[in-house]
Design a protein around this nucleic acid. Sequence first.
DNA 1: CACCAGGAATGTA
DNA 2: TACATTCATGGT
Length: 223
Amino acid sequence: MVYLAKIFKLNYIFSMNKIMQIYEKLFEFYGPQHWWPAEDKEEIIIGAVLTQNTAWKNVEKAIQNLKAKNLCSLAAIFEIDIEELKDAIKPAGFFNQKSIYLKNISRFFKEEGGIEKLSNFQTEKLRKKLLNVKGIGKETADSILLYAFQRPIFVIDAYTKRLAERHKLTEKLDYDSLQRLFTNNLPKDHQLFNEYHALIVKNAKEFCRKKPDCKNCPLKEFL
DNA sequence: CACCAGGAATGTA
DNA sequence: TACATTCATGGT
């Protein structure tokens, strides 16, 4: 029974919790989101840093600048002069810090022998290694784990927090509590976690930014 | 003009 | 542990 429930497309057979119901509603409304929007895993990792507290639109410009200079890889970022790196990522903001963060991450992957080697580590071990890199916090680490390494780790962001708040999914709104909430109420499926987080972002951008438009939101019935 | 965006590090009590 | 501050560009 529990095993069958892991096949999330059949989960409706069993009693669906609120977390799962919200996912079903979002997926029904928006369909698959095809995240992470990037050509390869290294671009995901780079984008994960660039998007820290930054509109994705600006990250896209920075990524394009990097690609135009053949800098959109960890090896290239490791080698390039940091001032030139700053110049390329400038549209994404916080370029003084992010240039250092990207250098740190590129050095980390170099020292660890690349993505292939790191793929051999268990998820929790890999997560701790990522968190040791200055510039990678919980959300960035989890984004990399989920979208680049395909690990079943649920990403919590400001949108997820606001969703849990508005729909009264829980009392405790800190990162770890929210992550446990979603993890404990969903089948541990990386593809499901992938879509769910992307759908939360999609929905927030469409109905919650600026003037909240709750009457047309697919989640209005859960308020 | 103010406010926010797919956060994290650092400092304070 | 629990908040407050700082970082910076570009869109609304």
